[in-house]
């Protein structure tokens, strides 16, 4: 060890990078593994076996699937628009993965402690939409295009109320910073005073991750595989992992914003965070197994006529209560 170049700043930078890499790997690996967990859990709830052949309880199924995916022909259709066709899966996987940087896993363990925290997530969720739209357009395929159009229509209807649904939380915590928001929930989790905010954000979150029942862009009964019909091999795998990254991200955000994040008695913070996140991931999967898929005009109607007024009223009431109590509570 040479003390000349090994300054304390360098060590702290290296530790920060190490923490960020650990979070990145944990999220990506867990997201990939979710494909197996989802199939097993769905099978359990539907009274089937699911994939249980590869290794004990089928835990090596993912490796088999990955080998299959790597050896598939990575085909770019000649009629596709090359630039956007290649760009779409990259956006799909990276956008929501980058958004994970703002989630505080423990009091000291967060990749990017941004003052604009939640806005950063909104920005990346807004950009993630292009993955579906560009994939749908560039494939030059009717089904893909319909998937992309549905995605655009869906986005316009949920993004507005998603933004407003979290403003109650921001007003109560007095900050956009996710760390501050977790600290503000020391006495009472925000799911109690912000219950409608929680409901509407959970709805919008399912739509952000394109999960059933809001998986209209890839409704396989009507649209083949929707926007990723023309994708195969690793490019398709990036869409696939991107969807699960979305599930993990939305679960982690729901935990951070409404269930007190890493806070909890006895157990260390990281354990509480992981446990709560796993609970929401499980709910995501259960939702897929339990609910039918609505038509997309129904989704738009619910978004504009129910959720938007609900979030606006929620924000108004929150503001009024805060003004009456004068000053932000819990901070």
């Amino acid at each position: 060890m040479n003390p000349d170049w090994l300054t304390p700043e360098l060590i702290s930078i290296l530790i920060a990078i190490g923490k960020a890499v650990v979070i990145l790997l944990a999220v990506v690996l867990f997201a990939a593994y979710l494909s197996f967990i989802e199939r097993r859990l769905l099978a359990l709830w539907q009274d089937r076996h699911g994939p249980n052949r590869v290794g004990p309880f089928g835990i090596f199924q993912l490796i088999a699937d990955m080998i299959k995916m790597f050896f598939k022909e990575d085909w770019t259709p000649p009629f596709a628009d090359k630039l956007t066709f290649l760009l779409a899966p990259v956006i799909a996987m990276s956008a929501l993965l980058i958004a994970f940087a703002i989630v505080p896993v423990t009091p000291t363990w967060v990749v990017a402690d941004l003052d604009i925290g939640i806005l950063f997530f909104f920005a990346l969720a807004g950009l993630a939409v292009y993955a579906v739209m560009f994939a749908g357009w560039s494939s030059n395929n009717k089904y893909s295009l319909l998937g992309g159009l549905r995605s655009a229509a869906q986005t316009v209807s949920y993004e507005v109320f998603m933004g407003i649904s979290l403003m109650g939380v921001v007003a109560q915590a007095g900050s956009f910073n996710l760390g501050d928001i977790v600290e503000a929930q020391a006495d009472l989790w925000f799911i109690v005073p912000q219950f409608f905010g929680f409901l509407t954000f959970a709805l919008a979150g399912v739509a952000v991750a394109h999960r059933s029942p809001f998986d209209l862009p890839e409704a396989e009964q009507e649209l083949a595989a929707g926007y990723h019909t023309e994708y195969s091999g690793l490019k398709w795998g990036m869409f696939f992992v991107g969807e699960y990254v979305g599930v993990v991200l939305i679960s982690a955000l729901l935990v951070t914003l409404f269930l007190g994040g890493w806070q909890g008695p006895l157990l260390p913070p990281v354990v509480w965070f992981v446990l709560k996140t796993l609970f929401f991931v499980m709910l995501f999967i259960l939702l897929r197994g339990a609910l039918p898929r609505p038509r997309y005009d129904q989704i738009m109607a619910v978004g504009w006529k129910v959720c938007l007024p609900l979030t606006l009223i929620n924000l108004l009431v929150t503001g009024a209560v805060l003004l009456a109590g004068s000053g932000p509570v819990g901070s």
Binding site: V129, M133, A152, T155
Partner: peptide, 15 residues
């Protein structure tokens, strides 16, 4: 700028 312009208005353009 990202949320409103890149994330919302241009989505409509692309649409």
């Amino acid at each position: 700028e990202v949320i409103v312009y890149a994330g919302a208005i241009l989505v409509l353009f692309v649409f």
